[in-house]
Write a protein that binds this DNA or RNA. Structure first.
Length: 676
DNA sequence: GTTAGGG
DNA sequence: CCCTAAC
């Protein structure tokens, strides 16, 4: 279990545990306790090495950039490592973390234990090639390369290398020596001379040179970390080798690897543990990350399947890796959404789309892509509310407008990287929406029906909904339907005081029944499903059901003080039974105010004037206006029967003649209201 | 189509 | 603000 734990640990981020300074602490930690897990131990160490190799590869990429090729002695056709600006496999990324802390320590240890280096160095190269190829799989896959053939290539190299390792360990050792002395950029020479089979005549001299150079490079690495590659190398040596006279007292720990090292150094049994180690490594690599063919034969038998699975698993890795980051991204995005508020998409768009890859990808034959829309952005809506408006009223105002728009009829649009995908017959795979990367660039949009070229979009809708069509994104008149046009029209007017008499004193406060808001939500176009469900979170109602089952309620628009004043003045002039005239006189251009609305408002004004100020809600109406309301109400209640058939002026004259209200008429005459 | 009144 | 009877 310990070994497994270690393996997991390595895979969980390749945080190679810091080797304790003393055997006791090492034992206490139980990090390297078990000695009968040699294979796993080797695998682990190799994985750790792989991490450092990769680290080296990255760091040397910059320092040795001018040197050209710095690939390991893995073969002539080693796939070039791409830059890392793209999504990297999790294994690579995590490798880079935490493996440096003890490398120094290992370097010191390795000074005295370098004889076994070649064996594990071979493994290291294998792993380097493996992971390098692994990286390239992902990158190339994204670039559209033939990954399958690359996989085969990698496999061939692996096989070839393994055979070399078995057949000519001495030659390979020399090649490793060269590498150690000169670094990765010497790999070509290593391949041509040592690896391909050089005479091992001055093997001893090579060895001496090796040790000499190791000492030197140790200094180098100690001084300025010029060659982390060597640290990497030494580190492996320290893991595999466990000499006596270990000054640093890690013998205890190293002995845990004694069996492994012993086995590995025997030429007869050399093959098997190495194979096992390879296989283990591969197995773990695959099982942990790819869950694919555990050995070469399997790979050879079905390369294509392997390629597919590799791709699939690799994608899975990336997805699982990205998921955590994606959460952060989503959070940030949510935050930004709240801050920014207004956008210019010209429609509703889901700003964050996520999926659940691990479940949806379980069956490669019929993968499912799950979506959940976590935020909805509402663009192109402008509100102007007084400073005294409550948060609740603001919410209500926004909610009502949103619901009005949604109720006006919307269709779901799919945008990939900001571009609309119009072909409804294409599959997700064909469109490229089946992978996680594209999901990040996927968004949904609620398109207003009037924007659709399809005539069906307007079926059953009033003609005005089609007439009001305007380009989405137009800041002035984003159009969903006539109702919304109306709403937004006024809203834009409100920002334009010159167009509206009531500009500066408008109130969006809700002075009346708050339950209206709740009622208005009952039959809206969107049903937001709780995020816990897996289904698409936003389910648009069909227009037909909406239209037939629930006629759309108009946006609630509380009367402003200005409007109240105009209404009072008109009623004072015209009386309470001529709402059509009142409409034409004072609200002719206010299309959203019907004479029924004016009548209702007068009714509520009378009621408001009769109740105590504490009972009143909404934006306060000046008491002076309310007094006039009561006076006019009383007057016209008395004179209701006397005003038929007369013009305003005549009535006024009559009224003034009969009653005591000449001043009212004077005011009305002198200041006719013009409402837009 | 308007008015009036209840909801 | 909606609904609708009544006109």
């Amino acid at each position: 279990m310990v070994s497994k734990k270690r393996i997991d640990y390595g895979f969980n981020g390749f945080r190679v545990p810091v080797i304790p300074k003393g055997p006791r602490s090492a034992r206490r930690r139980g990090v390297f306790k078990k000695a009968n897990q040699d294979d796993e131990a080797c695998a682990f160490e190799l994985l750790a090495l792989a991490g450092m190799l990769l680290q080296e590869s990255e760091s040397s990429a910059s320092s040795n950039a001018s040197e050209g090729n710095h690939q390991p002695a893995f073969g002539q056709g080693v796939i070039e490592q791409e830059k890392h600006d793209e999504v990297k496999p999790i294994i690579t990324d995590n490798i880079l973390r935490g493996s440096c802390g003890e490398s120094q320590f290992r370097t010191e240890v390795a000074m005295q234990n370098c004889t076994q280096k070649s064996v594990l160095d071979a493994n290291a190269d294998c792993l380097q090639g493996c992971i390098s190829a692994n990286n390239n799989f992902d990158c190339r896959r994204k670039a559209g390369a033939d990954v399958k053939s690359e996989i085969c290539e990698w496999d061939n190299k692996f096989q070839h290398y393994s055979n070399r390792l078995v057949e000519a360990p001495e030659n390979f050792r020399e090649s490793c020596d060269v590498n150690v002395n000169n670094g990765f950029r010497q790999e070509k020479e290593a391949n041509s001379s040592g690896f391909q089979g050089s005479n091992s005549a001055d093997k001893s001299s090579t060895k001496n040179q090796l040790e000499l150079n190791m000492s030197r490079t140790l200094i180098d690495s100690n001084s300025n970390a010029k060659s982390p590659l060597y640290r990497k190398y030494f580190s492996i040596a320290s893991y595999s080798k466990h000499g006596n006279g270990n000054k640093l007292g890690v013998r205890d720990d190293d002995e845990k690897f004694l069996r492994c090292s012993k086995v590995c150094t025997k030429s007869k049994t050399f093959r098997s543990p190495q194979r096992i180690a390879h296989r283990r490594i591969r197995k773990h690599l695959f099982s942990k990350h790819w869950k694919v063919a555990p050995n070469l034969k399997d790979c050879e038998l079905s390369r294509s399947d392997m390629g597919a699975q590799l791709l699939y698993r690799k994608r899975k890795i990336c997805q699982s890796f990205e998921r955590s980051e994606h959460k952060i991204r989503v959070k940030r995005r949510k935050f930004f959404d709240r801050v920014s508020g207004v956008t210019s998409d010209g429609g509703f768009s889901s700003e964050s789309v996520s999926n659940s890859p691990e479940k949806g990808m379980d069956n490669p034959k019929d993968p499912h892509v799950k979506f959940s829309i976590k935020t909805i952005r509402i663009p192109e809506l402008y509100f102007e509310v007084p400073e005294t408006a409550t948060i609740g009223s603001l919410k209500s105002t926004i909610m009502e407008t949103v619901m009005t728009i949604l109720g006006g009829g919307a269709h779901v649009g799919v945008l990939l990287q900001g571009k609309k995908v119009r072909d409804d017959n294409r599959t997700l795979v064909q469109t490229g929406i089946s992978c996680k990367e594209s999901l990040d660039n996927l968004s949904f949009e609620l398109e207003p029906s009037s924007l659709l070229d399809s005539a069906a979009a307007c079926v059953g809708d009033p003609p005005s909904q089609c007439e009001t069509s305007q380009p989405a994104g137009s800041p002035e008149t984003p159009v969903i339907d006539s109702e919304i046009t109306d709403t937004l029209h006024e809203s834009s007017l409100l920002t334009n005081p010159g167009n509206l008499v009531e500009s500066n004193h408008d109130s969006m406060t809700s002075p009346t029944d708050p339950t209206v808001d709740k009622e208005s939500l009952d039959c809206r176009a969107l049903v937001v499903v709780p995020a816990s469900t897996d289904a698409l979170a936003v389910v648009p109602f069909s227009q037909k059901s909406k239209r037939s089952e629930c006629a759309q309620r108009r946006t609630r628009r509380p009367f402003s003080v200005t409007e109240v004043e105009a209404l009072v003045r008109a009623v004072e002039e015209l009386g309470t039974g001529r709402w059509r005239d009142v409409k034409f006189r004072a609200f002719e251009n206010a299309e959203h105010r019907t004479y029924v609305d004016l009548k209702d408002k007068w009714k509520t004004l009378v009621h408001t004037a009769k109740i105590s100020p504490q009972q009143r809600r909404g934006e306060p109406v000046p008491q002076e206006l309310l007094d006039r309301v009561l006076a006019a109400h009383a007057y016209w209640s008395q004179h209701q029967a006397k005003q038929h058939g007369g013009k305003t002026l005549k009535i006024t004259e009559t009224s003034s003649a009969e009653t005591e209200k000449p001043s009212i008429e004077a005011v009305v005459q002198s200041q006719p209201l013009v409402m837009l």
